[in-house]
Design a protein around this nucleic acid. Structure first.
Lengths: 357, 357
DNA sequence: TTGTAGGCGTTATCAT
DNA sequence: ATGATAACGCCTACAA
């Protein structure tokens, strides 16, 4: 077992001082050609690499980003992580992942754990429970400790930080526009409860599209599904709800769903009821995941560009981290209260597949 | 901006020594009731929390686990992460994620980066490129540095470490048995190239099931799909390949696929060709992900219990880390060469859905 | 009961 | 050209 070698050990072996070794390895020209060579050769032989933890302590920065998301077995979130990891890696950062599991408490615990020196900044998406409680003190607390946060997707005005969001409103608008232009007269909306802002925005986009086309918004055609309890037989309940909904509203000829699961389930139920897709009913979902791509028929969706969201979030965070560096080097600290934060909006894109004409 | 407070600052404010503060906070009874109270109150007021990095440096352990996987936008891998994170958190560990993106080089870079003090041990699944190259020196190098590794799913005999694997052979065996018992006479196998061991094992299970039932294994009924290049129009190619395959072999009445994508695609293609599922062709896939659950018809699959794999991996790793602690405390180091490593096999389970009778 | 000193691994500053 | 020292934040054996 060859434990990693340290400067101290190299110094002892070569009978020089620690600082000589450090300088030689960093190529300082304070050190003579000879000793530099000798030390570098020795270091390479023993595969010396500086210890990250020691560097973190010394530099007071860890070069790692904390990601805090509600759920990881989830196409959108994992795509975002991939985007974050990509630019983080490119820019010399590591990524540490915490899962809130949609729980307020776990979000706080994770946050406090990581905030104690483990990370330089956070990229996060707020848990449902936190959104329900509307208690954001932990975010503000870590920001006021000097740890920057970038929020994505599930963001909130009450916290002053950079944000990257999907253009939910326009995405929904475009989707419903498309259904209208394709000839749909009675367009249903499948959505979630309102406390998750993205659901609300998508609903607004739906309503706006109808309004623009002077179509009366019939509240009977809006089905709000409560997914706050992730119960075991979730899918059966979902199917039943949609089934009843379609039975009661036989005039529906278009469906816009705020996520792909609702959309795919709606297609499934509709087909069981004898509807042809897209001939009798056209369907568009939000979120472009595996389900959309491989459903039969494949689903037309509003793509959120999760990877781009991750990349932008990482860039925003790292930009701010490195801007802070410079400020600190200048020995003055900007008054944070007037720092202006960026809200970046990622445009959506409609991916046309077989569920629309 | 209230930066996090340190022991030193508390000491200065309260006009005591750093060690007094440290002891008072850890509840040592060396310190008088009075000062302990005073210090603890002050610390609580300023929300003192010890700095993780400093602790890591001092204790020479980081309490974080490095996860290294080929891909994160992937149901199986993200499920495993969820399992790891769950027990890691429970046992006081954090989780840092690196993605190899199926690349040998990125796997090495990530590994070396994290091995320089950032983590106490690895949980990983080998990248395809590494499996192709059969170059495992980086794994052995980090192990010989005293950093334990637990491999899952894509494992390899050449590396001496704990392993957690799916019972691919028996999973495939059970699946094909089921097809046979359901009356299938000509069962096709949709598999990958052989270098990923799991593909090979599943193929062997398929062959064994046939053999057990004295069915001649017709190599025409085995389609090996090369997914080493993840090209853009991957799906179209896949569909075409399977389409041609089914056309050439019209007697096929059962399909076993080594992943759910192949299975779902096969169902799609078969239906386009006019087959009824499960009446004309029955289909079973490996991996129980979203696709299986929501496909039409829903897919019977072999579930790999990814979350359990993650949990077991984390437990194995942490057990070993904490066993090492004890050894070190005893001032003797076990001879690693005769350490016996555990290979844990997670049984699969067949989830019956609509694609089989 | 409290404080001092040393060390975890590194780098930077200031001697020699 | 090389080395000693201090510091990052914490803990702890040992002094006082």
């Amino acid at each position: 077992m060859k434990k990693k070698i340290t400067l101290k050990q190299i110094a002892r072996e070569l009978d020089v001082s620690i600082s000589t070794v450090s300088k030689a390895l960093s190529g300082s020209k304070e050190i003579s050609e000879d000793t530099t060579q000798k030390i570098q050769a020795f270091a390479k032989l023993y595969n010396y690499k500086p210890n990250n933890i020691a560097l973190s302590l010394k530099n007071r920065k860890t070069k790692t980003i904390g990601i805090l998301i509600p759920e990881i077995v989830h196409h959108f979130f994992s795509t975002v992580i991939r985007g974050i990891e990509k630019v983080a890696n490119r820019r010399g950062y590591n990524v540490i992942v915490g899962l809130s599991n949609e729980s307020f408490t776990k979000e706080i615990i994770n946050m406090e754990l990581l905030a104690n020196g483990s990370i330089d900044g956070f990229i996060l998406s707020i848990s449902k429970e936190t959104l329900l409680k509307q208690d954001y003190h932990h975010f503000n607390a870590t920001i006021s400790q000097g740890i920057p946060i970038v929020m994505f997707d599930r963001v909130v005005n009450e916290v002053a930080c950079d944000k990257v969001i999907v253009d939910d409103f326009n995405g929904a608008l475009k989707a419903v526009n498309k259904l209208i232009e394709n000839g749909c007269k009675n367009i249903a909306l499948l959505t979630t409860m309102d406390y998750v802002s993205v659901g609300r925005l998508r609903t607004q986009g739906y309503l706006k599209a109808l309004e623009n086309h002077k179509i009366f918004a019939n509240s009977d055609l809006i089905l709000k599904i409560d997914d706050s309890l992730n119960v075991e037989n979730h899918i059966e309940i979902l199917e039943t709800e949609i089934h009843n909904f379609l039975k009661i509203n036989p005039t529906i000829d278009g469906i816009f769903a705020v996520n792909e699961l609702y959309a795919v389930t709606a297609m499934k139920v509709a087909r069981k009821l004898g509807y042809k897709i897209p001939d009798d009913i056209q369907v568009i979902g939000f979120t472009d995941g595996v389900l959309s791509k491989h459903a039969t028929p494949s689903l037309t969706t509003v793509s959120q560009h999760g990877e781009k969201i991750g990349e932008q979030s990482a860039n925003l965070l790292i930009d701010r981290l490195e801007a802070n560096d410079i400020e600190n080097d200048k020995y003055f600290i900007e008054d944070d209260s007037k720092a202006d934060y960026i809200k970046m909006v990622i445009e959506t894109e409609i991916i046309e597949r077989e569920s629309t004409k």
